[in-house]
Amino acid sequence: MSKKIQSDLIPNEMNQTEAAPEETSLQAIAAEEMLQKNSGKSPYTVKKSMGMGTIRVIAYLVLTALSVLCLIWFYLLFINATRSHSQITTGVSFVPGDQLLNNLKKLQNSTLDFFRGTLNSAIIAFSSAILNVYFSMMTAYAIHAYRFKGRKAVHVFILAIMMIPTQVTSLGFYRLVVDTLKMKDSFIPLIVPSIAAPVTYFYIVQYMKSNLPMSLIEAARIDGCFEVSILNRIVLPLMKPALAVQLIFAFVASWNNYYMPAMILSSSKKRTLPILIYTLRAATEKDKDLGFQYVAMALSVLPVIVVYIFFAKNIVGGVSVGGVKE
C-alpha cells in the first residue's frame, strides 16, 4: 500500500522541488519513530488518501470562496456609495450608479460633519502613531543598548502589562481626564498615552536583537557621538523597516478606535469618524438616507484600504513577526 502512495508522490516531488531533498536515514528514522509514538500503530497501515492534485483544487476553491467572503462587503459598500437611497432600496446591484457626487454633496451639507471628522481622526491618529513609534523605539533602545540595574525586570514588567486590556483602567482614565485634568473634548488624552505602547516596544526590541549590532553603537561612541544623537541619527535610520510597519499599525489602531474617544469627545466639532459612523446607526427609518450612509462608511474605510494596497506585504510580514514569540 505504501509503495503505491510513494510512486504517486514521486513524479510530483520531481516536478515540484528544484533541489532534491537531502534525506538522511537518521531523519527518516526520527520521523518514523515520531509517527509510531504518536499513533501507537505502524505508519504503513495507512489508507490511501487524496492526491496532491485534489487537495490543490480544494485549496484554491476554499481560498477563492473565503476571499470573496472578505471582499464582497467592500464591493457592495463602494457600489452602493454611488447609488441613491431609492435605487438602493429597489434592489441589489453589482454595477456602480451615478449618484456618487450627489451623495458626497449630502455628506457636505449634513449636520454630521464627516469632513471635519476625517480631519479630527487624521490629527489624532497621526500624532499618536508618531509618538507611539518614536518613544517605543526609545524604550526598546534603553533595554537593548544599556546594562543597568533592573533592566531585565523592566523588560518583564512591560511584557506583563502588555496583556492588560485598556478597558480595565478606563473608569480611572475617564475620571482623570474629565474631573482631574478637565480635558473633556480634548485630543490630548487620546494622543499622549500612546507614548507607553508595550506591544510596539516588544516588536521593536525583538527587531533590535537581530538588526542592531552593539559594535555599531560602540563605534559611534568612540567617534564621540552623544547618546541622544546616536538614537536619532544611527538607530532610527536602521530601524526604519520595523518603524514603518509599526507606524501603520499604530495609525490604524487609533483611526479605528471608538471606546475611549466616544467617552471623551462630546461636542460635534470634535467627533472622530467612528463616533460619526455610530450616530448613523441611530438614524430613524424616516430620515434614513442609505446613499449618504454608504458614502460615509466608504469614506471612513477608504484611507486604510489605500494604505493597505501599497503596504500589504510589509503589514502581513509584520503580523507574523510581531505576533509570535521568537
Binding site: 517605543s136 534603553a142 533595554i143 544599556y146 483602567t169 475620571r175 507614548i195 516596544y201 561612541r221 547618546e227
Partner: peptide, 30 residues
C-alpha cells in the same frame, strides 16, 4: 553611559504612571 538607559525609560514610565497606573488605582478605589 548606562545611566542613559534610565533616562530613555522616563517617557514610557511617566506616561504609564499617569495614564495607566493612576487610573488603575482610581478604578480599584471606586
Amino acid at each position: 553611559k548606562d545611566k542613559w538607559g534610565y533616562i530613555f525609560l522616563i517617557p514610557f514610565f511617566v506616561v504609564f504612571l499617569v495614564f495607566s497606573f493612576y487610573p488603575l488605582i482610581q478604578t480599584i478605589y471606586f
